[in-house]
Amino acid sequence: MGCYFSTSKKSKIPGYEDPTVLASETPFTVSEVEALYELYMKLSNSIIEDGLIHKEEFQLALFRNRNKRNLFADRIFDLFDVKRNGVIEFGEFVRSLGVFHPNAPLEDKIAFAFRLYDLRQTGYIEREELKEMVLALLNESDLVLSDDMIESIVDKTFKDADTKDDGKIDQDEWKAFVTQHPSLIKNMTLPYLKDISMAFPSFIARTEVEEQEL
């Protein structure tokens, strides 16, 4: 029964990739990739039933509201959407979430965060981008800071991080800055991912059956 489900139905999902391949390229086990598939199917059929995660579905999952826009959620969606075709496919979902796994290499987390903050994808985090991100955060929170305070915080952060003093933060400067301030990448680790199989226990039984049949 398990095999029937896995071979005939999953292979019809656009962008479906073999869990053993995905497990070999990420910190996830095959069972965990199978559990992520269950999560993926739930998310990807929440609005448009096509087995692909659209931005609205991503926003609905994050905020319980399909229309809520958020600069950072937009950037994360764009980074997950590696093929840049407007949807997150299963392989993209698993590989991207792999970076957020507690056991993923620190280097990968640092690099992903850099790309997240490099809003205009110039290869650098620029002062204007940093200020734009601070303003975006203030816009969605109750935190009120005067423009002078914002300028002062952005200036100081830039002075500390831009060690080459060329007006932009490159990847090496970012890496050095994060090493000094590890809290900066705490968002890059999702403890949930260590328990993903437990979060979807119905899948474990099915996966065990499939493995026995193999």
Binding site: R64, L137, Y192, I196
Partner: peptide, 24 residues
């Protein structure tokens, strides 16, 4: 004033991917 701009940014709800794992 030891506030770091990146620490402030990290408070954004857009960074919290836990919603993906919550039962809807």
């Amino acid at each position: 004033n030891n506030l770091n701009a990146f620490d402030i940014i990290s408070f954004s709800s857009g960074f919290d991917l836990s919603g993906l794992f919550e039962d809807k």
